[in-house]
């Protein structure tokens, strides 16, 4: 069943003098439980698209429907925001309270959830991101990865159907990235629909589907293997595939009979067969 439906979606940023295209003619359907990675260079419209998905921006043309509710209908907006949760890039900009459990409770409080239910949700959300031990602590002393996990918990407390991460791992060190990604993958395994926006290609290799954007439009969608083996697409959209893919591309250009791979281990297997 589809959870997100985007039909002929277009949006541009307007000032008095000029109009800049954000996204153009986007058609995309996201199924419940899918893990989608959105790739594309800076300024290609990824974040604009993300903001259109939960009504932070409204379409100029076309529609966005979340579980059957149109974002363009103002009376739906709270429902949509509780269905589509978003985690942003900078962990420090997303903390609203000085105690972690208050921070996580902020979302459901604003949705008017019963107190007893809020308590349950906060407990569950912190458990889900592995931060229960910190519930009475302050977010300001946490590492970047821990802060992003709290930001995810704060979104989870609203019981969303879709979790969007807009470069949420960009400011983290490798350990922080791993923490956040393993939480996200676990949530996805439990049924959460995930849309991950990232510049780290190795985060994309586990996706069900990769959506590549360029100049506001969807340039390609496909499995990681399909996307990363398309040399021409990679060059055109200025992506930088993982090293193992790059090695395969170059060997293939040199005439070696290799096949596309996604991990170092797969690359080694393919190379062993060349002997």
């Amino acid at each position: 069943m589809s959870i997100l439906e985007l039909n002929d979606l277009s949006f541009s940023y307007k000032t008095d003098e000029e109009e800049t295209i954000g996204v153009k003619n986007i058609n995309l359907t996201v199924e419940k439980g899918e893990f989608i990675v959105l790739l594309g260079h800076n300024g290609c419209g990824k974040s604009t698209l993300a903001k259109l998905l939960n009504g932070l921006l409204l379409p100029d043309e076309g529609t966005v429907s979340v579980d059957g509710f149109l974002t363009s209908d103002e009376s739906n907006i709270y429902k949509i925001r509780s269905k589509v949760g978003m985690v942003f890039q900078n962990p420090d900009n997303q903390m609203v309270a000085s105690i972690i459990e208050d921070d996580v409770a902020f979302g459901p409080e604003n949705l008017g959830v019963e107190r007893s239910e809020i308590v349950k949700r906060v407990e569950w959300a912190l458990e889900a991101v592995g931060m229960s031990a910190y519930r009475k602590g302050t977010p300001f002393k946490l590492s970047g990865g821990q802060k992003q996990r709290i930001a995810i918990a704060s979104v989870l407390a609203m019981k969303p159907d879709v979790l969007i991460l807009d470069e949420s791992t960009a400011m983290l060190d490798p350990q922080g990235r791993e923490e956040v990604l393993s939480v996200v993958k676990k949530l996805n395994a439990d049924g959460m629909t995930v849309i991950l926006i990232t510049h780290y290609m190795d985060e994309a290799t586990d996706a069900d589907r990769i959506v590549v954007m360029n100049a506001g439009q969807i340039e390609a969608t496909g499995t990681p293997k399909e996307i990363f083996s398309d040399k021409e697409l990679i060059d055109r959209c200025r992506l930088h595939p993982p090293v193992c893919c790059g090695v395969m591309h170059k060997l293939s250009a040199l005439g070696f009979p290799v096949e596309p791979v996604l991990t170092d281990e797969e690359a080694v297997e393919v190379l062993c067969r060349l002997r």
Partner: peptide
């Protein structure tokens, strides 16, 4: 290079 896209990093 933190936070830059792949082309920007390069």
């Amino acid at each position: 290079t933190a936070g830059l896209d792949p082309a920007g990093k390069k």
